[in-house]
């Protein structure tokens, strides 16, 4: 097998950022503490913004700077703030009494999470490679990574058993889409992007309301008791 040729500096750097985004997703998958999960989400969003700036600078798409600014303001500042307030308000003070400890609510052990995460990520990697996509934005490898991010985010949502983590999973899923759109649709009209962002904010507010409603009723963020509706 001949040596793999080196990518350009831009492609290499962009891919490294994309891989870091995936690693942040893995972190959310593993991370037990909700607070740290929110922090990882904020970090992931900053990485998205960094990638947007990089792509904008190299491919000469100045509107990506605006996108980066919106991303930072919304996903790295506003949403984590909302979440942190939410977590403060719903501090599981009575965790011992109610027996609901939501830290580390995953239902799987270490080996299983890493293996499932890897398997899912590998699936994402190699399916996306088969796509005939050429990019005017971030390098195509980032698209494969984004598919992995999306799939791992799904696993996070399935695997975690508390409302806050599930919501974080949903938002990081959206980060995966942002990553994909930086590859295939970097010039997606700014207006659409901004409306999408506002829409996301709306979703945050609603999720926050629902989390509060759930907590107000159940005195916990755990979803272990959400078993009433079946069949």
């Amino acid at each position: 097998m001949p040596p793999a040729p080196a990518p350009s500096v831009f492609a290499g750097t962009a891919n490294v950022i994309a891989v870091l985004i995936l690693l942040a997703e893995f972190g959310m998958f593993r991370q037990a503490l909700l607070r740290d999960q929110v922090r990882l989400y904020a970090g992931q969003s900053v990485l998205i913004a960094a990638l947007a700036v990089l792509v904008g600078a190299v491919q000469q798409l100045p509107e990506l700077y605006v996108l980066a600014a919106v991303t930072i303001a919304l996903k790295a500042v506003a949403i984590p703030l909302v979440f942190r307030r939410l977590l403060r308000e719903t501090e599981p003070e009575h965790a011992e009494q109610t027996g609901h400890d939501i830290a580390g609510t995953g239902g799987l052990g270490l080996a299983s999470t890493v293996l499932i995460g890897l398997a899912v990520a590998a699936f994402g990697f190699f399916t996306a490679t088969a796509l005939p996509v050429s990019s005017g934005g971030a390098p195509v490898t980032a698209l494969s990574v984004s598919v992995s991010v999306i799939l791992v985010a799904f696993v996070v949502m399935i695997h975690r058993r508390d409302v806050a983590s599930q919501a974080i999973g949903l938002f990081s899923l959206e980060n995966g889409i942002s990553l994909a759109s930086l590859v295939v649709a970097p010039a997606l009209p700014l207006l659409v992007e901004v409306v999408l962002a506002v829409d996301l904010l709306l979703a945050v507010v609603v999720l926050g309301l629902l989390i509060r409603l759930h907590h107000g009723r159940a005195e916990t963020l755990s979803t272990a008791d959400l078993t009433e509706l079946r069949g």
Binding site: N15, V19, F26, L110, T129, T141, S144, V145
Partner: peptide, 22 residues
């Protein structure tokens, strides 16, 4: 867990190479 994280990094490294852009 620490070793698993290192393993994850190493495996992802091989993955990205197979993707062509690694």
């Amino acid at each position: 867990e620490f070793a698993a994280a290192a393993f994850l990094l190493a495996v992802l490294g091989v993955f990205t190479l197979y993707l062509g852009g690694g």
